[in-house]
Design a protein around this nucleic acid. Structure first.
Length: 185
DNA sequence: TCATTGATTTCA
DNA sequence: GAAATCAATGAT
C-alpha cells in the first residue's frame, strides 16, 4: 500500500467510514443479523462511485436444523458458500425473477446467513438487489476484501424491533415463529 | 428427463 | 387472491 492508499485510509477514518472486518461476521448469525441493522451497505456503480445504503431490515437463517434455512437441505453447489467463514455473500435466484442477497455468518462449517431484507430507499429483498444491481455474479464475494461491495460502521445508535421471518410458513414450528427478523424502528 | 417448489412483487 | 417466471431440488 503506497502513499495514496494511506491518504485514502485517513480520509475514510475522518468520515467514519470503517469497513466491517472478519471478526464482525464470524460471530453467531443472530448477533450479526441484529448488528447489521443500521450499518451502511456500500456498492460501487459503473463509474466507481460509492453508493451508501443504510440497512433497515434483516433476517437470520441458522444451521441445517433450521428448516427455513437453505442449508437444511444439506451441502449443495448452491448452499456451499454458507459453509465458509463469515463475510462471504450468498446469492440465490427465486420466483423466476428475484436475486436475494445474504451475508454468511459464523465460523467455517457452521452454515448461517443473514438475508438483507430492506435498505433505506428500497423495501423488499428483491427490489433492493434489482435497484443496486446485485446479482449472481456476487455469489462468493468476500465483503471484507471486495473492491465493489462492503459494509461500513455508522456511529449512530438505533432501536431495533424483532418479529417472525417472512414467507417461511412451510418450515413449521418452532422455526416459523422464532423472532429472527430485525427491523430498525 | 420431469415435476414441484419457493427467504417476492405487483396488480386486480 | 393470483400471476409472472426459472433455478435448484428430488423423484422417476
Amino acid at each position: 500500500m503506497g502513499e495514496d492508499g494511506r491518504q485514502d485510509d485517513l480520509l475514510d477514518k475522518m468520515h467514519n467510514r470503517i469497513r466491517l472486518d472478519r471478526t464482525f461476521f464470524t460471530r453467531d448469525v443472530l448477533k450479526v443479523a441484529r448488528d447489521l441493522v443500521g450499518k451502511d451497505l456500500v456498492v460501487l456503480d459503473a463509474d466507481r462511485v460509492a453508493r451508501r445504503y443504510e440497512i433497515l431490515e434483516t433476517e437470520a437463517y441458522r444451521g441445517e436444523e433450521d428448516m427455513a434455512c437453505h442449508a437444511s437441505k444439506g451441502r449443495t453447489k448452491r448452499t456451499e458458500v454458507m459453509y465458509r467463514q463469515g463475510g462471504m455473500i450468498y446469492m440465490y435466484f427465486i420466483y423466476g425473477m428475484y436475486w436475494m442477497m445474504n451475508v454468511v455468518a459464523g465460523e467455517e462449517n457452521s452454515p448461517q446467513a443473514v438475508l438483507i431484507r430492506a435498505v433505506k430507499g428500497f423495501s423488499g429483498p428483491g427490489k433492493l438487489t434489482r435497484e443496486l444491481r446485485i446479482d449472481g455474479t456476487f455469489y462468493g464475494e468476500d465483503l471484507t476484501l471486495s473492491q465493489r461491495i462492503w459494509v461500513e460502521k455508522r456511529f449512530t445508535k438505533c432501536e431495533i424491533g424483532t418479529g417472525p421471518r417472512i414467507g417461511i410458513d412451510y418450515a413449521g414450528e418452532p422455526w416459523k415463529s422464532l423472532p429472527w427478523r430485525f427491523i430498525k424502528i
